[in-house]
């Protein structure tokens, strides 16, 4: 009884955090405040991963998104002169982004209410899978057989490429 309630309560807390944080991101005038709201929103996302029995992804969310990307965003804001106090909240293309946002929301809503993929769609009230994979099994899947070795290595290659690109871009602006 309480088990269910506690989970539901947690769900609503995380939902408020992530949606409220997201609203804060788009409405705050101050870019740093926006970044802080983003962090709050990302925390909500990490909470969802925990509720979905994916603690590894929750840790990744905190480690990568909050620990690295949020810091990087703050650095980027600081590197951009006088971006901390913007007078304007809405720019001229606000309707375009609003349109895109509304379309995405519509797509998500349709996807959730009328599932169109999978074997005839997922039935409501059915857990996605009763088998919860552990981090250990994830590692075994990466390198244990030959199934996912290629994607695993390509991920490394991709990151190497990203780093080289980042260095080239960043150094060029300075020179």
């Amino acid at each position: 009884m309480l088990e269910l309630n506690a989970t539901t309560l947690a769900f609503f807390v995380f939902a408020i955090l992530s949606v409220g944080g997201a609203l804060g991101v788009v409405t705050s005038r101050n870019l740093i405040h926006g970044a802080v709201y983003l962090i709050i929103s990302l925390f909500g996302g990490a909470g969802f991963f925990i509720l979905l029995s994916a603690p590894f992804l929750a840790a990744v969310q905190v480690l990568v998104y909050i620990g690295a990307i949020a810091i990087l965003i703050i650095f980027a804001v600081m590197l951009t002169r006088s971006m901390t106090n913007m007078a304007e909240v809405v720019n001229r293309q606000w309707w375009l982004s609003a349109l895109v946002g509304a379309l995405l929301l519509l797509m998500l809503a349709v996807g959730v209410i009328f599932p169109v993929w999978g074997d005839g769609g997922l039935l409501p009230n059915q857990p996605v899978s009763d088998q919860v994979a552990t981090t250990d099994e994830l590692g075994a899947a990466f390198v244990g057989g030959e199934d996912y070795v290629l994607p695993f290595e390509v991920a490394s290659l991709l990151l190497t490429g990203a780093m080289i690109g980042a260095i080239v871009l960043a150094r060029d602006t300075e020179a």
Binding site: L63, V64, I69, G139, A140, S156, A166, A170
Partner: peptide, 28 residues
Amino acid sequence: FKVQYYIYGLIFLVFDIELIFLFPWAMA
């Protein structure tokens, strides 16, 4: 501020994601 801070941040980010991949590998 100096762009160097940002470069360290970027390099750190790349390493961070790489390490995320290595954790499951090390566990298994």
